[in-house]
Design a protein around this nucleic acid. Sequence first.
RNA 1: CGGGGUGUAGCUUAGCCUGGUAGAGCGCCUGCUUUGGGAGCAGGAGGUCGAGAGUUCGAAUCUCUCCGCCCCGACCA
Length: 590
Amino acid sequence: MKLWSQYFIPTLKESPADAEIASHKLLVRAGLVRKLGGGLYTYLPFGLRVMQKLTQICREEMERAGAIELWMPHVHPVELWEQGPRWAAAREIMFRADSAGDGKRAPRDPEFVLGPTHEEVITPLVKTEITSYRDLPKNFFQIATKFRNEIRPRYGLMRAREFVMMDAYSFDVNDDAAVKSYFAMKSAYEAFFKRIGVTAIAVEADTGVMGGSFSHEFMVPAEIGDDDVIYNEASGYAANREKATSALVPADLKDAEPAGAIEEFATPGVVTIAALEAAPYSVPADRQFKTLVFIGDGKPFLVVLRGCDELEEAKLGALGFTLFRPATAEEIEPIMGAKPGSLGAVKGTIKDAGALAGIFADHAIRLIGNGTTGANKDGFHLRNVNVARDLAVTKFGDFRRVRAGEPDVKSGEPLQLRRGIEVGHIFKLGTKYSEKFGAVYTDDQKQTHPMVMGCFGIGVSRTMQAVIEQSHDNDGIVWPWNAAPFHVLICVLDPQLPEAMELARKLGAAAEKAGADVLIDDRVERPGVKFKDADLIGIPLRLTVGGKGLKEGVIELKWRAQKDVAKIPVAEAEAKVAAAVTDAAAKAGA
RNA sequence: CGGGGUGUAGCUUAGCCUGGUAGAGCGCCUGCUUUGGGAGCAGGAGGUCGAGAGUUCGAAUCUCUCCGCCCCGACCA
């Protein structure tokens, strides 16, 4: 039982100027966090309590799924990362942690970095400690701070430079066992989000810099989310837009016959899809080939799409380059023979075709059949370009960004799109890290194999904000029971009356006995202030004890999520409050 | 990294265009009144106007540089 007057909940009447979205404003207004700098936040006592609720539930669900808690350093020797498979790709978002020195000498090369995740730490640990199939499977997790120097921190805790994450790492003897571990964790995630009262949907996702074979993201639907989810309710298909595919190109599509010989035509000044769509050329975007030049691990390659399609850059990850980026105009001309805007992938027109690491075409260009593309000669395009006959395609693949309305692969029904906040991500990693770090085991046939890994993350601090984003109204936060910093708030309107405070303590004790965390608002403030603050901080169950009510012999009971107020005779109050607490906890699955 | 915006008291901000040395609301302190949905009155404390340089008799205001914060974009030819 805590007394508000002895505690610390600095609420604000007005929203901070630097907060844009509801959950960010409420985090600050309700006294959960304060900003130190961009993407850096202090968790005030009230916010910390929520974090502790979330981490404890998370811990319980992880342990129920068989994972074992440990704690790893946040400061990592840089050698570990240099040895790992993703240093080149990850270092840009990593903080270095060298000695500040004496201020007189130039800084040395970094010897330490701050951990953005812990594959590079856990894998070497497991390598040295586990060598037999008898000791597998194992799944280790921690709930700790992560450091990522985000290019652009946003929306309070939503994308922070320092944040709290549950990260787990599974080690199995083979692929089948790893898949089992993966789905055990998927179930644990679902249980966790359900318990804390958050709607989070598992969607298929891209593996990104983490690598690995397949993965799911857990998304909280919200307008302000960072990610687009493509889904179809009926078929159950759901995927991050980066990963999503559609049945736009029919499986039985036949390649179009050539429509005639290729013709070159002059297009002075035309360097965009839109310009070629306009008169006098009037080539619709879905009849144009768009040719993009990228540099992958130092070598150029081409991507060919329909003019009307967008490249989904994440899908280029399937090509196997460690690092890739768009080529600059200066790089493009010597390779292609023309400036951007007049590029094409027609056989024989590329100036230095031998320099290319490949020409990768999106399946959807087959829908064009015969179309128009750049001639690799400034100011000229080619028409009657036939996909099968004329394009020097190394490999077809799925590189375009799916749009809402396209047919679902599973059902053929139109796909829909909505925004989401990514609160968790699970990966089946495979042997990428175990091979690199030599995490192998010996089987019962005396054979050694690399362990098959999975890795799993929940952004706990981000989840706290997602809860608020999903559960608030105009007056403030509406905490789900299990995420709430306190379950019961007792507003004592006349704290100077000894009998009022005495009753409040009795009710508090009864609620605590029923399993609730209780906060008593004993501040010497006007009732209006207390009610406004009560709504703002969003404690699920509010009891009001006041001199007026005491004269009538009643207290009031009100749920934050509901409008109506129940008056309860003082004589029955303790029992009723205890019953309400028990009931709410049961409903919430506490 | 590029673009846009912004920086004035603990918080929210006016003033800046058109230079004359800073004002309000909230919060805080004192007193009186009030007491069931962010009270009223009276008095008070609190500001190197983000930092530095420049122009000027004089700069919160104009110019330049730097820094912080917020938003958009991340390159689609």
